[in-house]
Amino acid sequence: MISKQTSVGIADMKITRAPGTLITYALGSCVGICIYDPVLRLGGMVHIMLPEKISNHDAGNIFKYADTGISEMIRKLEIFGGVTSRMTAKIAGGAKMFDIPGDANSSVGNIGKRNVDSVRKILQQCKIRLIKEDVGSNYARTMVFDTNTGQVTIRSFGRADNVF
């Protein structure tokens, strides 16, 4: 089968239709969000780094932040015909790669968890159902999203693939 694989970088977003596949590599504390419209077999993936945009200082990349990134992706999916009530989301990432004692309560120490919390909240606000997630712990994840089926595969070091 010929399938087209598109790579999503850090602070990047891509949209594709079946039979396309989207992949993002090595999500550490970043979070990868896949949103799928099963009727059109249309899917988008965004790789965010931070929970929310806090200033207009950095007008540049909206896909760096969970809030601006997810809403922009939903807007783009709607342009391609996607309907929010049909859309479902799967997320992965939000790990804590290094465990430095005393770092856990700092704003940066638990950034992975804050990213995940923010993503959940925003999906809820946008009325997108979050159906599966593979988040937290202390390892990086590569996320592959198949728009044929909406299936997500998580590859990680020293662990079996997690397919959901």
């Binding site: 550490g28 504390s29 780094m49 790990a95 070091f157």
Partner: peptide, 12 residues
């Protein structure tokens, strides 16, 4: 772990 995940720490 994966180099990408490790380097994402300073990036974030």
């Amino acid at each position: 772990n994966m180099a990408g995940g490790i380097l994402s720490v300073p990036m974030v």
